[in-house]
């Protein structure tokens, strides 16, 4: 066998060897399934997800100091993944949207709503329109029919304020998703992207989280010539913290209550706590209960997002 060839064979055998070792090594290096002594928290990627991902230490440190247990932040970048992670026990406390929170609780018996932000009890969506679209401000919801035949953009497919509730209010007024130009709405992927695609004119109208819209307006990032608000929806309950079942068994009697108190007790009195509230765009967290989201569940079922 020529030298070159034998060398190649040697390398391929080495590679195959390493590969087999990797496979075995991988299978055997299993640390015990769930680490039950650490509280694992997460959040759906909705507002400032990239910041949250980088500043997660602030929240986990705060909770860890308050509750005297180790807290770990697990980044999630997909709505459905957050729900699944909660169901499979990879996450103990998650910041969910209205729809995802209900989905998560239905799939995870024993879990419960702990808290929401001050603004979440009466949350709204805004409908926005491009200046050249000819769409006029809407004074009563039956005027939503003027959206028929327009190019329309939602945000993420599982978003409550960017898809579910806007679609619901349109359905109430006789508009279904296939009434839009092209026979279907577009999905921009996020609230910010919805503003961008409507402002640029790619889509004539869109719907998003009113909080995101308001902060864009305040920061002067909106060109009123190009894009403007045409309607604000009636209020509904949105984002909330959901805790897994059996936390009391794992962390001691009354832990779930202490967790709720710790969240509600976050006030803007230290640098770290201000950062946290700022990240979530909240003045404060307030108590919330499962019953606050009954209406969202009904809408979710009606639109087929909850089965």
């Amino acid at each position: 066998m020529p030298a070159q060839q034998s060398k190649t064979v040697a390398w391929s055998c080495l590679l195959a060897g390493v590969a087999l070792t990797a496979a075995l090594f991988g299978c055997s290096s299993t640390t015990p399934g769930g680490d039950t002594t650490t509280l694992r928290i997460g959040a759906i990627p909705d507002q400032n997800p990239e910041k949250l991902n980088r500043l997660y230490d602030t929240l986990s440190d705060e909770l860890s100091d308050q509750l005297d247990v180790p807290v770990k932040y697990v980044p999630v970048s997909n709505y459905a993944a957050a729900v699944t992670a909660f169901r499979s026990g990879s996450l103990d406390l998650v910041w969910f949207g209205g729809l995802t929170g209900v989905q998560a609780r239905l799939q995870t018996p024993g879990s419960q709503v702990l808290a929401q932000r001050d603004i979440d009890a009466e949350f709204t969506s805004v409908f926005i329109a491009n200046g050249a679209s000819g769409l006029k401000p809407i004074t009563s919801s039956d005027q939503l029919v003027q959206l028929k035949g327009k190019r329309f953009a939602f945000g993420s497919e599982s978003s409550t304020s960017g898809r579910l509730m806007p679609q619901y209010f349109m359905k109430q007024n006789g508009i279904s998703p296939d009434d839009f130009a092209g026979g279907r709405p577009g999905f921009s992927g996020s609230h910010d992207a919805t503003i961008a695609v409507v402002q640029s004119g790619a889509y004539e109208a869109g719907a998003l989280n009113s909080q995101v819209w308001d902060s864009h307006v305040e920061d002067g990032r909106i060109d009123p010539e190009k894009v403007s608000e045409i309607w604000r929806t009636p209020t509904y309950a949105d984002y909330h913290w959901v805790a897994a079942a059996k936390l009391d068994q794992r962390f001691g009697e009354g832990f779930t209550n202490r967790l709720q108190e710790a969240l509600i007790g976050i006030e803007p009195d230290t640098e770290r706590r201000r950062t946290i509230l700022d990240l979530f765009g909240a003045e404060a967290f307030i108590p919330a209960a499962d019953g606050d989201y009954v209406a969202i569940e009904a809408v979710g079922r009606e639109l087929g997002k909850i089965r």
């Binding site: 990627p45 991902n53 970048s77 459905a80 910010d192």
Partner: peptide, 24 residues
């Protein structure tokens, strides 16, 4: 896979893109 939420740099790219932070 990261763009769809399975972690790694795809996840970071997707998150920065969602907020239209082009520099990031």
């Amino acid at each position: 896979l990261g763009v769809f939420g399975l972690g790694g740099i795809g996840t970071d790219l997707a998150l920065s893109l969602q907020s239209l932070r082009f520099h990031e």
